[in-house]
Each structure stands twice: as C-alpha cells, then as structure tokens.
Design a protein around this nucleic acid. Sequence first.
DNA 1: ACGACGCATTGACACACGTCAAGGGTTGCT
DNA 2: AGCAACCCTTGACGTGTGTCAATGCGTCGT
Lengths: 251, 251
Amino acid sequence: MSDAATHGSLTGLRSCVRPGNRAGGVSQCSRCGARKASVCNAIGDPDLDRLAASVVHMTVPPGCSFIEDGAEATDFFNITSGTAKLFKLLPDGRRQITGFATAGHFLGLAVGDHYAFGAEAIDTVHLCRFSRPRMTRLMDDFPRLERRLLEEASNELVVAQNQMLLLGRKTARERVATFLLERLRNAEEDDVLVLPMTRTDIADYLGLTIETVSRTLSALRKEGLIADAGSHNLRLLDADRLADIAEGDRD
Amino acid sequence: MSDAATHGSLTGLRSCVRPGNRAGGVSQCSRCGARKASVCNAIGDPDLDRLAASVVHMTVPPGCSFIEDGAEATDFFNITSGTAKLFKLLPDGRRQITGFATAGHFLGLAVGDHYAFGAEAIDTVHLCRFSRPRMTRLMDDFPRLERRLLEEASNELVVAQNQMLLLGRKTARERVATFLLERLRNAEEDDVLVLPMTRTDIADYLGLTIETVSRTLSALRKEGLIADAGSHNLRLLDADRLADIAEGDRD
DNA sequence: ACGACGCATTGACACACGTCAAGGGTTGCT
DNA sequence: AGCAACCCTTGACGTGTGTCAATGCGTCGT
C-alpha cells in the first residue's frame, strides 16, 4: 500500500539532546496558562505548591521525540504550550498519527508499563513531567484529580471513536473537511486556523497520502471554501458547507 | 465510497422490547463469572453486597440495541456474557464498528451527558446496569474502583490507537489477519476462534466491504492459513504466519 | 417439508486514491 | 546573498478495493 514517503522528519532527531530539566519553582503552577484547560484545574489554589513540587518542566525542540513507542512508561506529561504529534508505526515505516496534542493535553496513560505510542514535538513544546510514583501519590491525595483524569480519558475515547469513523468510512474530501473544522477549535480567530504540522503529518493523521491531501485542499480552494492566509495558516470561507461535507452530505 | 449495504440488522429492532429488569439478589456478584475480568474485581468480597445492591441485571436479545447514539447518558453497563457491537453512524447510513464488547467490558463512559456511540447485542447479552449517580457514589466510596476504571479506560485507549493504525494504514489482508488474531484472545481453544458477528459486522469493524472480507478469508483459506471449523467458527492453521501478515511482513 | 429470507461467496467491472515523477517555492545554514 | 534541503503542488498512470450482480446455502416460520 503506502510507505516510506511517510516518515520524513527523522532528521529532526539530530538536535534531540534531552533538554536540561529544571525543577519547577514554587507556585509555577499558579501562573501556568494551560492550567485552566488541563487536569491540573482539579487541584485548588491552596494545594498548587504541592503540585508544583511534583513536576519537572521541560522544553522539547521541534522534531524531537519525548515518548518512544515501546519504552518503559516512567512518566506522565502535561503539555503547557506548543503542539506534539502522537503516532504508531508499522515495521516497514508506515505511520499513523493518532492525534495532535496541544496545551492542556495529558499524555502517558499506558497499559502495563510500556508506552504503546510515540510522541514528537512539531513546534517547540513546553511540558510538565510527572513521574509515575509521584502521580500515583497525587491521585491518592487528591481524588478530584483522579476523577478529572477519568474524565479526560473518556474524552480521548470519544475523540478516538470519531477518528475511527473517519478512517474507516469517510472519503478523502470528508476527512480533510473534518480535519479543518477540528482545527478550528484550536484557533484564536473565528475563521483562521493554524496548521503547525506538515502535509505529511496531516496525511498520516487522516490515513491518506500527501498528494491526496494537497489535491483535496486545492479543490476546496478552487471551490471558494477555504483560502490561504499566510504560511501554515488557512481561512475558512464557508464553515457551514465544510461541516456538511464532513458529515457526508452528498459530497 | 461505500454505503447502504452496511446496515442490515435494523430489522432486529422489532423484537426489542426493553426486557423486564429485576434487581440483583443479594450477593449475585459473588457468583458472577465475569467479575474476575471486570472492574468489579476492584471491590472486595466484604463489600459485594453493596455492589450487588447498586446494579440491575438485564438480558438483551440478539439484534437489540441498548445504547442509542446521542441519547442521554444515564447509565453505565458491565457485560457479564455475550457479545455486543459498539458503533458510530454517518447520516447516510455508513457505519463504523468501533469495537466488540464481551464479558467483563465496561461501557458507557461519555463526555458531557450524551452517549457518543450506539451499542447492540450480537448474540444474547447479559449485563449489569449502573445508574450514573449510583456509580458516582460507588467511586466515592471505593477509590480502588475508580483507579480500576481509569486503568480500563487507558486500556481502551491503547486498543483504539491500534485500531486507528489498522484503519489508516493497513491493507485489507493485514486487517483481516489482525482481526483473526485479536479474536483468538476471546477463544476457548488454542486455535479455534468464534465469530458470533456477521460478515457485515466484520467489514464495518475493519473499514472494508463484506465482499472484500469474504474474498480475503477465501484467499487465506486457499493458502492453508485458516480452515472452516463449523458455523461461525474458524481454525487458525498458521498463527505465526498470520502474525507476520498482520504486521505487514512483505504481505 | 417447503418457501422465503438473510447471509456468504464469487465474478466482472469501475473508480477513488495511491504511486511515480517533475518542478516551483520556502526556509535555514554558512 | 546563495546554496541546499525540505516541503508543497500538479500531472499521468496504476491498482486495491468498492460497486453491481448472480448464485448458493443455511435457518426459520407456517
């Protein structure tokens, strides 16, 4: 089927020295922009110092991997800024990106004690690292945190089910339309969306090839549904129509 | 792309009167065959009465739906016997089966208060129903249950990621091989697997058509990798080879 | 028993998307 | 500034899987 064209960014690994970790200063968490959207909002202000003392901040440069598929699952991660891609590989190099993680996303839930996926920074990613034992202690001490994690996992499951519907049953056109609308939620402006990832990443996320993604975007552009808005930016000109397309409305 | 041929079993709905629910007798749970494999194993023997008092037993006949996509998420379910299919639909009827649930599976985790998928019995399904408030009370009172649920959700996430890899990047042959091996885990014998679901269900699970599933199985049969073993049964003659195929080994 | 219906198999053909290939644009490094 | 990688786009063509259609085969209800 496909192959090879799909794993371009291995070159990024050359600059992947594990960055110097520094312990979070006291109450870092109270100033964290991602807190509102993350599981950390389950912990109240009075206990923030306790939370801050449990994490290590990390900066991951673009193209650098911070979770290796199959490696021992020693840590949990909470992204505070930037975008990461999560993926699985087949032995011959075919890749499926299972999701893009942005500020507030919690990563590292695993079955057994090994990660079942890889994670790599797309742009510069800032994140908090929790060791498993510390996370367990936090959950013991803050039941609301655990409840919040279950909520988060449920959320991810719903997202995953939607993605299975997309991968199993939608056409290329429907997949791209779905993707664009999905990206709208991460957007600052109402109709301008940011695509920090490459076409290869988009293709590996949607189960397509880069050529098909490119052609489909060109078609939507020609039909006046989207327009370029600078590098790595797109403007949605007719989100309603795109929503119809995404759900299979006659195509 | 595909369509229509994929939603055959709506006819089953005619016999879908909601079965008479009866409260679980005291300590039903201690005799439950599914307990060992389910989240209920987080609750110790002394507290089983409390658990039994929180559930309602239900019997769902084949073809009958017990979770409606979009309906208010009022309950959780724990399957004690039988097999159910979980699925999502597109407006035009295209269907993606996101999983098959058997004894021990916990269902009903939702984001917000509406289910994001449907569930329908394949054969006769026996299950326990937990109302949301009761489940919340149980989690409050038994932290180990909540921990167990998080574990279960993590598990489901890993499975979902594997399925995304299958749907996005594997060939029909690889998908079918993967499916057969997956079924092996639900098997009683070492190499004989049971397929209670129809070809349509398999196709909708693997993102294929029934014709492609049928042709692929015929090819594997012709190659001596599998053999018929009675109605709804298959024998795997070369599981190692199938495992190679499932991971894309030269095909 | 006997039809009738749903399910599975198989064949012929079509098409959406993948593959191969060429060229232009953008970014980053020295 | 200028070169070198990438990245993206576009075209021509191939193919894996979908579509359409015919036939066989268990199963169930009367």
